[in-house]
Simulated assay, not measured.
Amino acid sequence: MSDTVSLAQSIVTMQAASTQQALSVEMLRQNAQADQALVAMLQQSAEQTQAALPAGQGTLVDLTV
């Protein structure tokens, strides 16, 4: 009888660990997607900023100041 209870407890523990691991993987996946979206947004913003500069601006630095 105690072997059956032990086996049942072991199975429940393994299922709980499996569920926890699946949730952790999903959270990591969602974080990676959020990071990718942030990088894409920042890259797009940087490209728009570069496109908005007038010709010649930002190419030379005046060191005599």
Rank of each mutant, 00 (worst) to 15 (best):
S2Q: 01
S2V: 00
D3C: 02
D3T: 01
T4W: 06
T4L: 05
V5N: 07
V5A: 09
S6V: 06
S6T: 03
L7I: 12
L7A: 09
L7C: 12
A8M: 10
A8W: 01
A8F: 05
Q9H: 15
Q9S: 09
S10Y: 11
S10D: 07
S10P: 06
S10T: 05
I11W: 01
V12R: 12
V12H: 14
T13Q: 11
M14I: 04
M14V: 08
M14H: 11
Q15V: 07
Q15A: 11
Q15F: 09
A16T: 08
A17T: 04
A17L: 04
S18L: 08
S18R: 08
S18M: 11
T19R: 06
T19D: 13
Q20V: 04
A22P: 02
A22M: 02
L23I: 06
S24M: 08
V25H: 02
M27P: 02
M27C: 00
M27N: 05
L28F: 05
R29V: 08
Q30Y: 07
Q30D: 12
Q30G: 00
Q30R: 08
A32W: 10
Q33I: 11
Q33T: 09
A34S: 06
D35E: 09
Q36Y: 03
Q36I: 08
A37R: 01
A37C: 00
L38G: 00
L38N: 07
L38H: 00
L38Y: 04
V39A: 05
V39P: 00
V39Y: 08
A40F: 02
A40E: 03
A40R: 08
A40H: 04
A40D: 03
M41V: 03
M41F: 07
M41I: 10
Q43I: 10
Q44L: 11
Q44R: 06
A46V: 03
A46R: 02
A46I: 04
E47C: 07
E47K: 04
Q48F: 11
T49I: 14
Q50H: 14
A51E: 05
A51K: 13
A51F: 15
A52D: 07
A52E: 12
A52I: 12
A52G: 10
L53R: 02
A55Q: 11
A55I: 14
A55W: 09
G56M: 04
G56I: 07
G56V: 14
G56C: 13
G56K: 03
Q57Y: 15
Q57R: 12
T59G: 10
T59W: 15
L60E: 12
L60D: 15
L60G: 12
V61R: 09
V61G: 03
D62C: 06
D62R: 04
L63F: 14
L63R: 15
T64M: 10
T64S: 15
T64E: 05
V65C: 12
V65T: 13
V65I: 15
